[in-house]
Design a protein around this nucleic acid. Structure first.
Length: 881
RNA sequence: GGGGGAUUAGCUCAUUUGGCUAGAGCGCUUGCCUGGCAGGCAAGAGGUAAGGGGUUCGAUUCCCCUAUUCUCCA
């Protein structure tokens, strides 16, 4: 008998082995980029390992290391890769996952990529070769591409040809988007089924057929083309390798489990969920799904929050909120949680992954707080929706089916997933009209698609340069050439994007808005309405193109706007340090907005700032401004050196980055920052906080103004006080004068009220005295000089006092007439009188119309001279009874 | 970026073809019952119906804009 001792690697070892292997092949190992993406309009989250290298593929940036390997945190929840609804129901979908990858940028190509992948899998990880299949691109006639014979011939050296599969364009031709770098790819698949199963069905036939145990493990992409917007492919001068291997899947393979969720990546979390829910994992399919959902989503939201993306009500923040709510909902429905629980599992995740990803550890308190608040908020929404549902049920008792429109409304407006509605319907013995629901869904999708159509034309190259230089730290003008431009159409609007070889224009980044200004050349002047960053490219937005794009142009940044913006940006840095000094070092930047009018700074802090704290911060900032600290700026500092200087690092730095450090007194404020700043703090002039508020659990927001704006603020406040004084005839003590005024006013109001009451009483008395008894009815008619509200009061008061009352009142204002009729309740039935009907008839006399209730009605008209006739008519009606 | 909903007393929410001088529960104030508390009874205060504009004799209700917020789609 043969004894096989299998020493399973744990997930930490598996990750390390991958990175060590490629290090031995001269790869630079770089840390994971943040999962949350800034400065890319096409992407909210990192959804593949290659994202942080996109600029290299696009040729917008130079290559620092030709060979790189890493593990990258990824999130797939929207756009092309939307796996959210699958997660938990099977054994292998995830929202957040790690992607192991190795890259070559114009260095090695297919031969080495294939050889190393094979070596790592079979010799280092020791995966049985007889379980592996590979695929190569089989060609595609629509793109006029033949089979990838180069890859096929290389694979032949490692694996028998009957294990090589020709793949379709869908599976084996990788594209970044509608346009851009792309190329054929080779996938490595592994068959994890039992020997018996393998005998029954050939593994080769299951490749790419969604069998949970015959799965793709590694994708090797050979980037050699660029897709143009007309669909044509152009060969790239420098060819690249881009590979991706799902870490959680690899763990499953190497640990011999049947599910990613059974590996040591997920089990500790799942066991914790089981523990606090009092249920056992593996007992009940629905509960198991819920536990997997929660385990997966906990990872996604924790990493997102650690990377600076807080849940919110739109964009990326809303994606995070939705993931969290999905987890809450599964816990609510299938694990019977009614109180926040996800935050309690966080500890396990942090102890498990905090070493590899230190951001989890350092932000643990904030993550926990944010998750708890979100859970509470969603449980509230949930109970509102349930109430709505119950209202619907009780008002539609005889229906057996829940209206699809209502089901869609619940989904669309209250965030109720359709399966939850179905579940609740089932409990009442009802079904849901799915046709109607799906119709509502389709309509909404069509609407959204139409609204989101952006037509981007290809870049038109004017001068073939790749690098653009930013001059804006030193100058606000430049002599530049256009490198390229393109036209963008959004709905009925059209604008242009221009890239210059050098530019003083600062592109929106790090919270600082982009510069505005203009450029001149060939006797034309064209305005630049905004400057944006697309990855590393500085893009200038204009409404028109110069008629001749060649030649040189003179660029001008709007100086006054830029200077005011700089003041606010520098003030933001000083504020940041002041907050840390006053509140403590737990204060971390969570968001920032800087423009020429004001600054907005979001930061982690757990309670409302007191008046004194706000004042202390203001005082400290203004003190630093008056110290007139000279700006120290260091460009192109290796990030490691910057960290040593104690620079406050934000999210967003990538591997090997050379960073810029902005210092205002090395013992006070040192920050990594790409923005533009005042030359010395004195330029800021003064600083004033105008609001302090909460924007999310554990996150506060300060809005402040500086320089001219602050000066205006103080001046207008002073002016206000001066004007108040003047109005009060310059008293010695303004406050006392106002207090006196207030109490006098109060007294007068009281007296006036009593006087009015007396008058009304007199008026009421006079009216009552004027009553005529006609057919047993107390008829009163009068024209009064009161507004409609007072007439109403009077009418109600008289109704309470006079029996058998028929009251008709009129007033006149602005050449218009109003009538009001009040009738005692008993007359309505006894004499069949209806104020509403009567007034319609009577109002004809004043050329108007009206209505109301049987006992009280009003009307308006354009003919005041008809009032007497109206009274006469009313009297005739009563007399005629 | 586009759609749908919400915003009414300190809090949670009512208010159906536009008209009952906008109501309830909890909380608050006062008084009473009880040895005290818990509790009970009674009276009362508290509303520019988010803000602005329009339609109308009349708008919490219908329309438009703004703000805040929730939610879905992209």
């Amino acid at each position: 008998m043969k004894i096989i001792i299998v020493l399973k690697m744990n997930s930490i070892e598996i990750r390390k082995t991958f990175l060590d292997f490629f290090k031995s092949k001269q790869h630079e190992i770089v840390p994971s980029a943040p999962m949350v993406i800034k400065n890319d309009p096409t992407l909210m989250f990192t959804n593949a390992g290659m994202n942080q290298f996109k600029d290299i593929f696009l040729g917008n940036t130079t290559v620092k290391f030709p060979r790189i390997a890493d593990t990258q945190k990824c999130l797939r929840v929207s756009g092309k890769h939307n796996d959210l609804e699958e997660v938990g129901h099977d054994t292998y979908h995830h929202t957040m996952f790690e992607m192991l990858g190795n890259w070559s940028f114009g260095d090695y190509f297919k031969k080495e990529a294939i050889a190393w992948a094979w070596e790592l899998l079979t010799e280092v990880y020791k995966i049985d070769k007889n379980c592996l299949y590979v695929s190569v691109f089989g060609g595609d006639s629509s793109d006029n591409l033949s089979k990838d014979n180069e890859a096929y011939d290389i694979w032949k050296n490692y694996i028998s040809e009957d294990r090589i599969i020709d793949g379709s364009k869908k599976d084996n031709f990788w594209e970044m988007g509608d346009t851009g770098p792309c190329g054929p790819c080779s996938e490595i698949h592994v068959d994890l089924r039992s020997e018996e199963e393998k005998k029954k069905v050939d593994g080769k036939s299951l490749v790419n057929h969604d069998d949970p145990l015959v799965i793709e493990i590694w994708n090797l992409v050979f980037i050699e083309y660029n897709r143009m917007s007309d669909g044509k492919l152009v060969s790239l001068p420098a060819k690249h390798i881009d590979t991706g291997m799902g870490f959680e899947r690899l763990c499953m393979v190497l640990q011999g489990t049947k599910s990613n969720y059974d590996t040591d990546v997920f089990q500790p979390i799942i066991q914790e969920i089981a523990k606090i829910s009092g249920k056992k994992y593996g007992d009940n399919n629905k509960a198991d799904i819920a536990m997997r959902v929660i385990a997966d989503h906990l990872r996604a939201i924790s990493f997102a929050i650690a990377d600076g993306q807080l849940p919110s009500n739109n964009k990326a923040g809303y994606v995070i909120r939705r993931i969290l709510r999905r987890a809450v909902r599964y816990g609510y429905t299938f694990l019977d949680f009614r109180e926040p629980f996800i935050n309690e599992i966080l500890g396990v995740l942090v102890s498990q992954m905090g070493d590899m990803f230190p951001e989890l550890k350092s932000q643990k308190d904030l993550i926990k707080k944010v998750i708890t608040e979100e859970e509470l908020a969603f449980l509230r929404t949930l109970s509102q929706g349930i109430q709505k549902f119950e209202n619907y049920i009780s008002s539609n008792k005889n229906s057996q089916e829940i209206n699809g429109t209502f089901a869609f409304e619940l989904f669309d407006t209250f965030g109720f997933p359709i399966d939850l509605t179905q579940l609740m319907a089932k409990e009442q013995g009802l079904t849901v009209d799915m046709v109607g629901f799906n119709k509502g869904m389709e309509e909404q999708k069509t609407r959204s698609r139409q609204a989101a159509v952006v037509d981007t034309e290809d870049w038109v190259i004017v001068n073939p340069e790749t690098e653009t230089e930013f001059l804006g730290y030193d100058t606000l003008t430049s002599e530049s050439k256009i490198i390229k431009f393109r036209k963008i159409k959004v709905k009925d609007k059209e604008y242009f994007q221009l890239v210059f070889d050098k530019t003083p224009f600062y592109a929106e980044s790090g919270g600082q808005l982009g510069d505005k200004g203009w450029f001149e050349g060939n006797s034309e002047k064209i305005f630049i309405t905004d400057t944006k960053k697309e990855n590393n490219l500085i893009v200038h937005l204009t409404e028109t193109l110069p008629t001749n794009q060649n030649g040189s142009f003179k660029l001008f940044v709007d100086e006054s706007k830029r200077r005011l913006t700089e003041n606010n940006h520098s003030a933001t840095h000083i504020l940041h340090s002041a907050l840390r000094a006053v509140l403590g070092t737990h204060v971390e930047q969570k968001g920032s907005l800087v423009n020429d009018e004001r600054l907005r700074f979001d930061f982690s802090h757990f309670s409302k700032m007191s008046e004194k704290e706000i004042k202390d911060v203001e005082t400290l900032v203004n003190k630093k401004i008056r110290e007139n600290i000279i700006l120290e700026e260091q460009r192109n500092l290796p990030i490691e050196d910057a960290r040593k200087m104690g620079a406050v690092a934000l999210f967003g730095e990538k591997y090997g980055d050379f960073v810029r450090v902005i210092t205002f007194d090395k013992n006070y404020s040192v920050e990594l920052c790409g923005g533009t700043h005042a030359k010395s703090t004195g330029q800021i002039g003064m600083f004033k906080i105008v609001s302090e508020s909460a924007i999310a659990a554990g996150v506060r927001r300060i809005e402040a103004i500086t320089a001219d704006q602050a000066e205006n603020f103080f001046n207008s406040q002073l002016q206000l006080v001066l004007e108040i004084k003047e109005i009060l005839k310059n008293p010695n003590d303004v406050l006392k004068a106002i207090a006196t005024l207030q109490s006098e006013n109060e007294n007068l109001n009281k007296q006036l009220g009593e006087f009015k009451k007396g008058q009304a009483l007199n008026l009421k008395g006079d009216l009552i005295n004027s009553k005529e008894n006609i057919n047993g009815i107390n008829f009163i008619s009068a024209k009064v000089d009161l507004d409609m509200a007072s007439i109403k009061d009077l009418a109600f008061a008289m109704k309470a006092e006079v029996e058998n009352l028929f009251l008709i009142l009129a007033n006149e204002s602005d050449g218009k007439a109003n009538l009001s009729i009040m009738i005692s309740d008993n007359l309505i039935t006894e004499k069949s009188l209806n104020a509403s009907n009567l007034i319609r008839e009577i109002a004809k006399e004043i050329n108007g119309g009206g209505g109301g209730q049987p006992f009280y009605a009003t009307a308006g008209g354009k003919n005041p001279s008809g009032i007497e006739n109206a009274f006469k008519k009313a009297k005739e009606i009563i007399e005629g009874l």
